[in-house]
């Protein structure tokens, strides 16, 4: 089993574990953690898409030999992962704020299957 297969299986396992976590629980905090696991799995997979065996870090230095360039790792997935992490931070923070509001309003983090009727907003 080579590196690519191991990392791919790890990434997909993280995604699947997160999905199971959401399916098996009604707790908002666990949902946030499960989504975080899924996100990590997707990010690992994204990094993997840029990896090349034996390739160097994609940074051109003074020592770089333009006559005989060495293969680089694809830098685009790294940039995508950075963006994905920032988006994940934002949505996780939003979810945490909603979880706090839920706990204050209902006194619990358990989110029922059917939301109760609330007073109508204008």
């Amino acid at each position: 089993m080579n590196v690519v297969t191991v990392v791919t299986l790890s990434a997909l396992s993280l995604f699947a574990i997160g999905l199971y976590g959401i399916w098996s629980s009604r707790n908002v905090l666990r949902w946030i953690l499960a989504v975080g696991l899924m996100e990590t799995g997707v990010n690992v997979f994204l990094v993997l898409t840029g990896w090349r065996p034996g390739a160097a870090v994609p940074i051109i230095t003074r020592a770089f030999d333009t006559a005989q360039p060495t293969p680089f790792v694809d830098p685009v997935p790294s940039a995508l992962v950075l963006t994905s992490i920032v988006i994940g931070l934002g949505t996780t923070t939003l979810a945490a704020a909603l979880a706090v509001r839920h706990a204050l309003h209902h006194g619990t983090l358990e989110c029922g299957a059917e939301p109760e009727e609330t007073e109508v907003q204008e």
């Binding site: 995604f15 999905l19 959401i22 908002v28 949902w31 989504v35 899924m38 996100e39 997707v42 949505t91 939003l94 979810a95 909603l98 979880a99 509001r101 839920h102 309003h105 209902h106 989110c111 029922g112 939301p115 109760e116 609330t118 007073e119 907003q121």
Partner: peptide, 22 residues
């Protein structure tokens, strides 16, 4: 998310939106 009241609807929306976005 309503200014007052239960945020359950918004939480459910967040969950669906996040999972499918991933």
């Amino acid at each position: 998310a309503p200014a007052q009241g239960s945020p359950r609807g918004a939480i459910r929306y967040w969950l669906f939106s996040s999972v499918t976005s991933l």
